[in-house]
């Protein structure tokens, strides 16, 4: 199993309001948070962590537009110039009948494109093993993690931070 060679100190919280107020305090004290793990998307978490708006939707738009063009132009080329056949008495360039396929191909390309992009950005995919700090963070616990590989001297700060903000458990783990 591939390891990141990181020493991580993490605290578990019982609900998202505790988590959000803890992150606010960490920001005030300028403690550098490595990552936050929650079982479900928590509103207001991104701005607190200073995360920028995702650009995934821009990629999605480009994939979608590509799909629209490919499908429409391909069908036009096939039915108008490459192999013109009369279907149901319609003209060769029967644009309305191209629309459903164009629509579906747009959705298909943007969906597949965005999925692949998302997995690539997150470093996920078949054969990749992602270290997990505690299995309960996918269930009912909210986790704040600090990287203590190179900063053993801060560990006490982190531990007191966890006690002050009401973390229910504090653990450290090598990942």
């Amino acid at each position: 199993m591939k390891t990141l060679n990181k020493e991580v100190l993490f605290g578990l919280y019982n609900d998202e309001t505790e988590l959000l107020s803890a992150i606010k305090q960490a920001n005030d004290k300028h403690l550098e948070i490595m990552d936050v793990f929650t079982p479900f998307p928590v509103h207001g978490l991104d701005p607190l962590l200073g995360l920028k708006e995702s650009r995934l939707h821009i990629a999605g738009f480009i994939y979608g537009a590509t799909g629209t063009l490919i499908a429409f132009l391909f069908m036009t080329w096939v039915f108008v110039s490459d192999w013109p056949i009369i279907f149901g008495g319609k003209p060769f360039f029967a644009a309305p009948s191209f629309i459903p396929v164009t629509f579906e191909f747009t959705v298909l390309l943007s969906a597949i494109g965005m999925t692949v992009t998302f997995y690539t950005i997150c470093g996920m995919g078949p054969g990749v093993v992602n270290p997990i700090l505690d299995s309960r963070i996918t269930d009912n616990k909210f986790c704040i993690a600090f990287d203590v590989t190179h900063g053993k001297e801060n560990e006490n700060d982190y531990r007191s931070f966890f006690t002050n903000t009401g973390a229910s458990e504090v653990h450290s783990k090598n990942i």
Partner: peptide, 12 residues
């Protein structure tokens, strides 16, 4: 709108 239009256009 399109479904209504296209079905009628296609059935002719």
């Amino acid at each position: 709108w399109f479904s209504q239009y296209m079905l009628i256009w296609y059935a002719n």
